[in-house]
């Protein structure tokens, strides 16, 4: 139960952070990626701020024997740089530029009751379902 409350509160903070930073404005994200046009560098500070805090916090947290409300760490263990990692990230980057939304801001923007974030989010779910269908046959992550 504690884990669920933590997840809820982290979700709230995370969404507010996205909204405050400007990540929920597609135009702003587009401007950030528009290096060869009218570049708006301000979103670099979102990543720098988030990484600065987490880089330092991570060093301290990982020295603990276990998380406070869990018996063990649930961190990714995979090390290899795979083609699926690169190709998937590439495909994601193209979609991110086209819409100006990545998954977190799109989810947050559902609360605005606007049609376009909803359309994007439903398509995102279909993209994930498509992956699942193809992956069952082809095992794409190998």
């Amino acid at each position: 139960m504690k884990n669920n409350v933590v997840a809820l509160i982290v979700g709230i903070l995370f969404a507010i952070g996205l909204g405050v930073s400007g990540m929920t404005k597609p135009e702003k994200v587009f401007g950030f990626l528009d290096i060869f046009g009218k570049w708006d560098a301000s979103l670099i500070f979102v990543m720098l701020g988030a990484i600065l805090v987490h880089l330092i916090a991570y060093r301290f947290i990982i020295r603990l024997k276990s998380p406070l409300f869990s018996k063990l760490w649930h961190l990714p263990t995979k090390k290899e740089i795979t083609w699926s990692l690169i190709l998937g990230s590439f495909i994601f980057g193209v979609g991110w530029a086209l819409a100006g939304y990545c998954p977190g801001p799109a989810l947050t923007s559902l609360a605005s009751f606007q049609m376009r974030p909803l359309l994007f989010f439903v398509s995102l779910i279909f993209g994930m379902l498509t992956f699942r269908l193809i992956d069952r046959k082809l095992n794409l992550k190998r």
């Binding site: 504690k2 884990n3 933590v6 997840a7 509160i9 982290v10 903070l13 995370f14 507010i16 952070g17 996205l18 909204g19 405050v20 930073s21 400007g22 990540m23 301000s42 979103l43 670099i44 500070f45 979102v46 990543m47 720098l48 701020g49 988030a50 990484i51 600065l52 805090v53 987490h54 916090a57 991570y58 947290i61 603990l64 276990s66 998380p67 406070l68 409300f69 869990s70 063990l72 760490w73 649930h74 961190l75 990714p76």
Partner: peptide, 24 residues
């Protein structure tokens, strides 16, 4: 504001790691 939002995001994912041991 981007910096402030970023710091908040960093704090949120740090809570998730410290309390639940998970990646956000």
């Amino acid at each position: 504001l981007p910096l402030l939002g970023g710091l908040l995001i960093g704090a949120a994912v740090s809570f998730m790691l410290y309390l639940n041991g998970r990646v956000t």
